[in-house]
Simulated scan of single mutants.
Amino acid sequence: MMMSRRLLLGTLATPMLAQGASAQAPRPLRVVVAFAVGGLTDVVARILAEHMTITLGRPLVIDNQGGAGSTIGATTVARAAPDGNTILVGSVGHAAMAALYSNFPFDPITSFAPVALVTRQPFVVAVHPGVPATDVPSFLAWLRSRNGEANFGTAGIGASSHLAAELLRKLTGANFTVVPYRGTPQAVADLTAGRVDFMIDSQTLLGPLMADGRVRGLAVTSAQRSTMLPQLPTLAEAGVAGYDASAWQAMYAPANMPDAVLRPIADAAARALRDPGVQAKLAAAGVDAFADPSPEAARAHLAIEVAKWGGLVRDLGIRPG
């Protein structure tokens, strides 16, 4: 009888324990953003995380780890367990970090598993109103007259904004001094204060400053004009032949994440990008979703960008200061 009672109690306890375990809060998904709070990549990550939290049924927690050409955040994710609890949101800098940092121990392609190719937008070439340039030709002439003393503000060496400026240097021969910041908002603050002369950065941040006269926009960097700032020519239209650069954001997981673990996160990102409410928020932020956000599209895009920007870094001998 004593044995029967123990068996009965054990049988009754089992579903109670299972019920208690199922009631536990799901483990958060850590979203490492390789840039500071307030920059474009951070804004995109937060918009997507809000929707993906609902789809996945678990909280997505943003962890900003900016600096060092996005290698700080990338290192965190490359070293994380491939268990579906840590992902990275990076931008163009991800494609160039191995070329920039010769001792960087991780490869931008093989050390990560692409999850989703999410958004893109053109940069704006903008100057402080004190710069005597009203279009791209006069701006390039002014840069050349300054003999490298003009200051260019960027979120960091190897950041997408910095690489966009280096592509301009390569194609035009115009020289300037790079002033790196910890994040884009700090660089923008110094642009409006006149401590740096120009920036090439997000239309989301620079567009409103153009509207109130705190900066002067000269051109956009993409192959096509921006729907947000249609009055600005592209750099190619303004005479810089072959110029084409855009900011873009993608999600990555640690390498060797099982497909069964990766796919639900990729599917949640794709569902977020199809959601009209998310699309409206992204449009308000000045970004467009990629038509194909799949891991396969992300992998193909990254390979092209690594060849493009890694080659630029090597050709110009760009190294962190």
Rank of each mutant, 00 (worst) to 15 (best):
F112M: 04
T76W: 03
I265W: 04
L171D: 00
R120Y: 11
I265M: 08
P233D: 02
Q19R: 12
L56C: 12
V306D: 01
N151M: 13
P82I: 01
R195Y: 04
P137C: 06
R182Y: 11
M199I: 00
L17I: 12
P114E: 00
V240D: 05
A211R: 14
R5N: 08
L262D: 06
G69N: 06
R263P: 02
V278L: 07
V89P: 00
H94S: 12
A247P: 03
A238C: 06
L7G: 06
V32K: 07
E149N: 13
W142I: 04
Q231K: 13
A13D: 03
D135G: 12
A68S: 12
I54W: 08
A126M: 09
A34E: 05
R79P: 01
P137E: 09
L316M: 15
S226K: 08
A250K: 02
T86W: 09
T55I: 09
A150G: 10
L232K: 06
A18D: 03
P258V: 04
D107T: 07
A241H: 10
A303P: 05
Y101K: 10
A289Y: 06
S22F: 11
V115E: 01
V261M: 07
L218F: 04
G73H: 06
A289S: 10
I109D: 02
P122K: 10
A272S: 10
L167W: 02
I200G: 01
K170M: 15
Q203N: 04
Q186N: 15
Q186R: 15
T53S: 13
H51R: 14
S202Y: 01
Y252P: 02
P105S: 09
N64Y: 00
M257L: 12
M199W: 05
F106D: 03
G311S: 10
A116E: 08
R216F: 02
L209I: 02
L56R: 13
R58W: 02
P132E: 07
Q224R: 15
A266K: 09
G158L: 02
P208H: 07
G130F: 03
D259N: 09
S160M: 08
Q121A: 14
S91L: 05
R319T: 15
G93M: 09
G90R: 06
L282K: 00
A36Q: 14
S4V: 08
V215I: 15
S226R: 03
S145W: 03
F198H: 10
F123K: 07
V178T: 15
T134K: 13
A236Q: 12
F104M: 11
S161N: 15
M16S: 06
R214Q: 14
A96N: 03
M1V: 09
A98R: 13
L235W: 00
V306C: 05
G153M: 00
L140K: 11
L60K: 09
E296Y: 05
S294I: 00
M3R: 14
